[in-house]
Amino acid sequence: MVELHLTQSNWEDEVLNSDIPVLVDFWAPWCGPCRMVAPVVSEIAEEYQGKLKVGKLNTDEEPEIAVRYGIMSIPTLMIFKNGEVADQIIGAVPKEYLIEKLEQVL
């Protein structure tokens, strides 16, 4: 697994100050679609290694970050570029659609 485990303590370094864009997967253990979308996120992490950082944020463990970004539905995938939210995708979507969104930002 190449995805980073994101927390309050590494959020700034790994996401906001990252040199490359970051895809953050907001998820929780009790969310079925989140668990089943995980393999797609893993595939993306492998395919885009070096160009894109991929991290996972558990909204149960880190509710403050979830609130800060107005997360009220999971899975939500957010793409960060230069510390800002460049795009977001709510709900499970086809991999192809996710790649399309990523390519626009990259």
């Binding site: 969310c31 079925g32 989140c34 107005g70 009220m72 539905s73 999971i74 709510i90 709900g91």
Partner: peptide, 17 residues
């Protein structure tokens, strides 16, 4: 408001409410 209060999955999003 999808993802901002509108949801189709209570199991996923219930905890935010």
């Amino acid at each position: 408001f999808t993802g901002k209060g509108v949801s189709y999955c209570a199991t996923c999003d219930g905890a935010f409410f």
